[in-house]
Design a protein around this nucleic acid. Structure first.
Lengths: 135, 135
DNA sequence: ATCTAGTTTATAATCTTTCTAAAGTGAAAA
DNA sequence: TTTTCACTTTAGAAAGATTATAAACTAGAT
């Protein structure tokens, strides 16, 4: 994703393209592969990459703003930290608990044949498959 | 599950059947249906049920000891709190985010037809399906 | 009955995340 | 361009969940 598109992405979601948001968005979206991170890991990587430090609260604010805008998704992972994913399409995950690493699985690579009915007047919003790995 | 079996369950996992552990185990395992809880909800329910209060730290200790012993499983749920489940067999979950309620799905009620190969020298430990509900 | 390693307890500490309120800044309007 | 002001950023405080600590307690072996 190009710089110009990042500005568009921010503006179109009603987010003023501030210096910090552009830097974070550039870091997150200017890459080929999908990217998984926690706020802590993102903060470390940004600190390493950028000359001027971005406040931790700003990273929290920005990640949440991006999530609300639909530019990031949150992944179910057991444990204390919240994981985010730059892949916002419907998909699944491998999880390697040895390395705490998430790997995307394309939605079409998992086919579910049988699924139970949603209970009492509820509907199914989405189905997430989480495959735990071992060595 | 009967009182005698609860004592057995504790002893067989190397846990001394103290007053607190027996009370917590009785509360958790002496029921027909599987039970989902957080440490906070368990603490509230135990406080209501028991005459003498059990320290919060003891509830944390005990729940973790039961989990390590394989008597409880931990469920992936987005959010700040950790959910536990008295159902330790391989199974799946519905999750109603409106009510923060988990509902068990029997393993045989979900059939996965196609599944990707585990990456680079890794093996699949287990597959968890998480179905989010909406109204 | 005594002893001791394993437990419980209250409290402090830690960790992640959110709140607060003051200072800063895009961008619209003058 | 300058002014203006709502939106942002920031550092630090606060909150919420969980874990660590160390002293008091207790199950069960001797």
């Amino acid at each position: 994703m190009k710089k110009i598109d990042i500005l568009k992405k921010l503006r179109s979601s009603g987010l003023r393209p501030t210096k910090q948001r552009v830097e974070i968005a550039t870091f997150l979206f200017e890459r080929e592969k999908t990217f998984h991170f926690t706020v802590e890991s993102l903060n470390k990587l940004l600190t390493k990459k950028l000359a001027s430090k971005i406040a931790l609260a700003t990273i929290y604010n920005t990640v949440h703003a991006f999530k609300t805008a639909g530019h990031l998704s949150e992944v179910e992972v057991r444990g204390s930290k919240t994981y985010f994913d730059t892949n916002v399409s419907n998909h699944h995950h491998f999880y390697d608990s040895e390395t705490s690493e998430l790997i995307d699985i394309n939605a079409k690579d998992i086919i579910i044949q049988k699924i139970p009915k949603a209970p009492n007047g509820k509907k199914i919003k989405n189905v997430e498959v989480f495959i735990n790995l071992k060595n």
